[in-house]
Design a protein around this nucleic acid. Sequence first.
DNA 1: CTAGTCCCATGACATTTGTCATGCCGAACG
DNA 2: CGTTCGGCATGACAAATGTCATGGGACTAG
Lengths: 203, 203
Amino acid sequence: MTIRLVIADDQALVRGALAALLGLEADIEVVAELGDGAGVAAAVVEHSADVAMLDVEMPGLDGISAAAAVRRAAPSCRVLMVTTFGRPGYLRRAMQAGASGFVVKDTPARQLAEAVRRVHSGLRVVDPTLAEESLMSGDSPLTDREAEVLKAASDGGTVADIAKAAMLSEGTVRNYLSAAMAKTGGRTRAESVRLAHEHGWLL
Amino acid sequence: MTIRLVIADDQALVRGALAALLGLEADIEVVAELGDGAGVAAAVVEHSADVAMLDVEMPGLDGISAAAAVRRAAPSCRVLMVTTFGRPGYLRRAMQAGASGFVVKDTPARQLAEAVRRVHSGLRVVDPTLAEESLMSGDSPLTDREAEVLKAASDGGTVADIAKAAMLSEGTVRNYLSAAMAKTGGRTRAESVRLAHEHGWLL
DNA sequence: CTAGTCCCATGACATTTGTCATGCCGAACG
DNA sequence: CGTTCGGCATGACAAATGTCATGGGACTAG
């Protein structure tokens, strides 16, 4: 029996290449390819897919949310996350969202088909390097509001911009940014944004 | 006669998938795969490659520099740039470095083999969407030093950090940042970094 | 030669940012 | 019920940032 696979990745070229690569496997059949996370759950249901392979970074609905949607819509379908960046926090978030596997795009190509098979058979697949780092960095120390404000600051706006966007006073925004900077270890706002991003603590 | 192709991309999975995909074409033979730009020129010479397919974003030697190195080492070898981000400035820089083609990773997979063939036959291949944007945004308005300082600021350090890294006085750094902010249209340092980056004006 | 441009630098200034102390409110937890 | 914790806010203050005027040296183009 073949494994029915749905692939979602925002880069068409990567998506196509992955589909072609995995389609060569005798026991894997690619039944759908998506460019964003929004339609993944529906596609999984429509094609009775066994495994959904999702990129974390996608426009619209991100991969983590898409994973949760898939689990809700089709509990029997396993989710394998594939991501470009090995942000430690992503792993934890993905697992909490119900993903069964998590590999980075640096994974040798031939191991990918094997990962799909393991996930399909109910095993968990986690990139070993990533698992180690994940234990290191642990949960995000940021509160919801701190993360929200820091995220709003990530495009370089002023305190006033952020305050307006988040419906907070400027003083409060400064407080949150200050707290976030202390927790992330950054000495400036911009550095904290970068650090939090690298840890996978934002989105 | 087959086209001898060298592929360089820092993501192993993408690299492998591309190689597998293009290797299926009867007239294309993948003779080498690299994970960074440093060894590309040598690999091209060693394998007498006809076309080099390079990612712009790579650790160590970036794709643009690698393209120039290839042109110097083996003028008969054409260069096709493949990039994740369609930064308009990249196109111009790549062309100046001697690249013959430039496509984004959103390109449908089957068009890629065609792009390789066109480049090999001496034609230029440019993503049409990108070409339009490129004309829009034009050359970087930033002076060399301004770009250098802005790039040094991109990881979120303070003025003092940047000054030390660039061997400049703090006042001078502030001047360049101020000028860069005016030219990019950003209202804060962080915003200018983001804008310049999106335009492809930073490396 | 002269004018223009870029690089480098200084100093002064207003604004913004980051820090700290402090307070109120509501929800969670013992 | 009291305590703790997070969200929200204010005000004050030191430090960093962004702006502006200014000037000298090097290099290029007219």
